[in-house]
Each structure stands twice: as C-alpha cells, then as structure tokens.
Amino acid sequence: MERSLFNQFRQIGRDLFLRGLVNSHAGNMSVRVGGRMFITRRGSMLGRLRRQDIVDVEIDLPSSHILLASSEIGVHRKIYKETSSLSIVHAHPPFSVLLSFFEDELLPRDSEGSYVLKRVPIVAVEKTVGAEEAATAVAEALRDYKVVIMRGHGSFARGEILEEAYMLTTALESSAFYLFYMREGAKEFRRFAERYKDW
C-alpha cells in the first residue's frame, strides 16, 4: 500500500477517535481500488493504526484475508457492489446514535449540515453487525444519500475519497448535537425549510 494511502487511514482514524466518534476498538474504514479494497483490521484501534492494521481483500471474491478484516466487511462489500462509492467511514457518533432511537430521519438545521447533508435516513435492522439484512439496508440507503444511520449502532458515510466520508461523519455528529439540544420553537432561517424532508 502506498504511503499516502496509509497516511490517510492513520490520520483519519486518529481524528475519529480523538473527536469521540468511535470508542477505542470500534469503527472501521475502507477505500476501494479497482476490484479490491483496503479495510481496517478487525478489532484494530482506529486511533493508533499501524500498517498491519490495513487489510487488502477482493470485493467480489472470498479470500483468506477475510479472517483479518473488520467484522463489518459484509456491509462494505455490499456498498461497493451496489454503489459507486470509493471510500467508507463507519463510526459510532454518540448524538447521532442517540437520536436514532427516537427518529426515522435526521433533518439538520444548522448551516453546515443543511448544506452538505440535507437529510439523513435512519435504517433499522434487528441484527446490526455482520447480518446480510444490515448490509442490504445500508447499501440501499447509500444509493441516494451520502450518510446513513443504522438505528442504535452508528453511521456509514460514503465518499469519493476517505476524507470526504470523514467530513460527512463529523458534519452529521455536529448536526445531531444541535438537534438534540434544540428547544421547541427554535427559529428557522431557511427558505424552503420544509422541502428538506423530500430530499
């Protein structure tokens, strides 16, 4: 793996941890390269990634490297098969996960969230890790949205590059934070505010 690609994994992994978007051994990331993907190792610490924590696997074909890859590899594979995504960040952003217990979608009202996210769907599945059902629901949502939340579990963001998926994850969490603390009667400043529901 090229140094610049590894550096992306290492730096973004560290930022995800320091920003409190993943716990010490949670979350995962991947980048698509042709018919393959580089994905973080199962149980790796995103805040302290080493070269051996990035695993190279085929997207379509099973291989022995699957033993090492993140337990969410099925979701990543499904996303790459079903969409044109080139990078994925999966995190556990606390406010986003918290709101997912109460809502069916997030409609960010802050400026950044309103510009870059518009609407974030929330999908609900019974088995949230490793199940085909979870992979299908997330991949389906990412056909038309850049970020999706799996209820009670975490976010999946897609990007053309890893940094974009990371940016969307942080924007999501900020928006969720504002939404959580927003009091009734909060003032709206956006024309067409009601249309974001249709996005």
Binding site: E2, G34, L86, E160, I161, M167
Partner: peptide, 28 residues
C-alpha cells in the same frame, strides 16, 4: 479538481492507487 484544486478534497496528485477507480467515477 481533487488533485490540484482540492474539490471535493485535496488528494495526493502523485499517488497511483485509487486513481483508476476515481477516474472511472468522474467520467461517469
């Protein structure tokens, strides 16, 4: 866009891995 102007984000313009997939995406 991505290699020099940073749109949507700046990437390593001399990197090789990932460029084939990115070019196909942009062409589409």
């Amino acid at each position: 866009g991505p290699e020099v102007l940073g749109i949507p984000k700046l990437i390593d313009r001399f990197a090789v891995a990932g460029k084939g997939s990115l070019v196909a995406f942009y062409q589409n």
